[in-house]
Design a protein around this nucleic acid. Structure first.
Ligand SMILES: [Zn+2]
Ligand SMILES: [Zn+2]
Ligand SMILES: [Zn+2]
Ligand SMILES: [Zn+2]
Lengths: 162, 162
DNA sequence: TCAGAGTTGTAATGTTATAACAAGAATTGC
DNA sequence: GCAATTCTTGTTATAACATTACAACTCTGA
């Protein structure tokens, strides 16, 4: 059960997220790009700095100074980044978050725990759940393309802070 | 592993979905209403007839003749129906579907398999997955409020039809 | 240099969801 | 019955999220 959390509130965002991103990756979803385009780099940078989920329009606002003018610039970059497996879309939030894998796990069946108090997101993988879902799909002749698993609730530190 | 599918395309929708809905239920999510309001009845009827997911605006269009004029009329009814456990929201589709439980299962951790070819949705519960998610939540001090599990892919019959 | 592919810019539009406020029904207590 | 209260509804306007369509630019490989 791999786990890692990006904590939204926490972590003074160090600038200069390593954009061009070595990409020794050999496993990525789609193609692993040798290098990101300018817009992709900027969008990925915004998500990395944030350390938590952002909506496309929030990203747009953050990139005005970099010349971004229209939502499509953001959505196009996000589409690619998701394809590359570097960013996940959170369906229940209509938002996007940089992937937080320690090092390149499965990446097909990630789960996300979203705190409704502070907005932090924890990404984790659970082999048993993956196995179970694939099992259901197999038993029901369902060709599984993608799974969405999102937990809503209150994280430990927000519960502590009564 | 309870399962039941509403098949969108299939099933000639018999009219007159039993609206007022006996409601012997004793387990529902929020309160179990003795009787639905007019708008709730109409919205639930539309979803039942459809036998598959509908967006709020599609429902609105279908209920023009019944006097519906504004999205809020639909959203308000949906909010209650979801609260009652009679309707589920599909996050990855921004749509709503009538619950298809054979008879009142857990209802807290349902999963949905959505066919991207025909739009059909199968709702199922899997105890192992539920256990696993609650386990993660317990281990991580996460107070679980709601879970979303949605599978995207191609259903058996759409695969058959090459 | 040229053709083709991929990326970008921009405007317009489409789709999904909520805020704010007034008015109408149903319920409760008297 | 008849307030007082609460819930439900109607309506307008607006916010938030996402895509279509088209033209221009850039990069790559003949
Ligand atoms: Zn990830
Ligand atoms: Zn929190
Ligand atoms: Zn259900
Ligand atoms: Zn299908």
């Amino acid at each position: 059960m791999a786990e890692h959390s990006h904590d939204h509130a926490a972590s003074g965002h160090d600038d200069a997220p390593d954009h061009d991103h070595g990409h020794d990756h050999t496993h990525d979803h789609g193609s692993a790009p040798a290098k990101l385009t300018r817009n992709q780099t900027l969008v990925y940078g915004a998500l990395s700095r944030a350390g938590g989920p952002l909506t496309a329009y929030t990203i747009l606002d953050q990139l005005r100074d970099d010349g971004f003018r229209a939502p499509l610039q953001v959505y196009r970059a996000l589409e690619k980044l998701v394809e590359f497996g570097m960013v996940h879309r959170l369906e229940s939030l209509n938002a996007f978050v940089a992937c937080s894998h320690p090092q390149c796990v499965d990446h097909e069946t990630m789960a996300f725990a979203i705190c409704e108090a502070c907005g932090s997101v924890s990404e984790f993988a659970d082999a048993a759940i993956t196995r179970q879902l694939k099992g259901w799909a197999g038993n029901n002749g369902f060709a599984l393309a993608k799974t969405t698993i999102e937990l809503r609730g209150t994280c430990r530190s927000c519960q502590a802070a009564v």
